[in-house]
Design a protein around this nucleic acid. Structure first.
Lengths: 138, 138
DNA sequence: CTGACCTATGCAACGGAAGTGCATTATTGT
DNA sequence: ACAATAATGCACTTCCGTTGCATAGGTCAG
């Protein structure tokens, strides 16, 4: 828990009780988490607080937002030291059509694409959909 | 207009007046279109009709849905003869952060990705974001 | 220690977009 | 022309993201 506190402080986020819990929750889960997921996990907490916490975490590069094509915004902890905006840190995500979970494949970077004349890429998002390892093994 | 009628019929969609107009609208625009866009263009038409028309078009492989990361579903005409579900027909999309338009780069297919053991990909979505050719030229 | 200040939290409400149920109107085939 | 089927229109609902404002809690200067 001390480590989490330190991590938050380093990134300029005041380590309140709620924030520590949310961070802990994100760290335990190994999949991308939606606001609704967290809301369900912390029944007592206010939707807005959770919402703003995630937003703060995102601004301070503690989590990155994931658009997995479900239309629901999800979040996952950033790797320590990663800068989510750099092309080299853009990894792909895998969404399982069976269990409906989305995982970061941090080892798989998005390949560089040669765009037509005039197009300048600043960001990229690649989501693969199918059956994940847990579900295909059954 | 006769051609459009034929195209719809071939794909098993009854060519009603509304549908022909929507198809024509999609054909003229060279960017991905949202429900709201169409709604604005056909002020007289019912939202639901437009919604269901797009859905029907999608089912019958006349348009493909595009998730460009804005959280708004968009649609664009399929290339004739394409099967949007086949890996070989999966192209990437470019979303301009300046004009907020999304275009299909049908020539640019999504590169094949080698996934870890146990993952089976069925579909893929790649969106690049940045400045498009029209906006960068100014 | 204490008051002023800033930040985080809680509460209420809004707004956009997707989606559904049902009645009505148009089309098709016999 | 009629029955069957499909499309359209209207009224709602739900879900999620988002914002405004009041309150509570932590921080810092004096």
């Amino acid at each position: 828990m001390k480590k989490i506190e330190q991590r938050l402080t380093e990134n300029g986020v005041r380590p309140t009780a709620m924030r520590l819990l949310i961070y802990k929750y994100l760290a335990e889960k190994e999949v991308a988490i939606s606001l609704t997921d967290i809301e369900a996990a912390f029944a007592k907490a206010e939707r807005t607080t959770l919402y703003r916490t995630l937003r703060t975490f995102e601004e301070k590069k503690i989590v990155h937002q994931i658009d997995d094509g479900t239309g629901i915004q999800k979040y996952a902890l950033c790797e320590p030291g990663c800068d989510c905006n750099l092309e080299q840190d853009l990894h792909l995500h895998f969404h399982c059509n069976n269990c409906d979970e989305t995982v970061c494949l941090t080892e798989h970077k998005i390949p560089h694409i040669n765009l037509p004349e005039g197009f300048v890429a600043e960001d990229a998002n690649l989501v693969l959909k199918g059956i994940c390892d847990k579900c295909s093994g059954q």
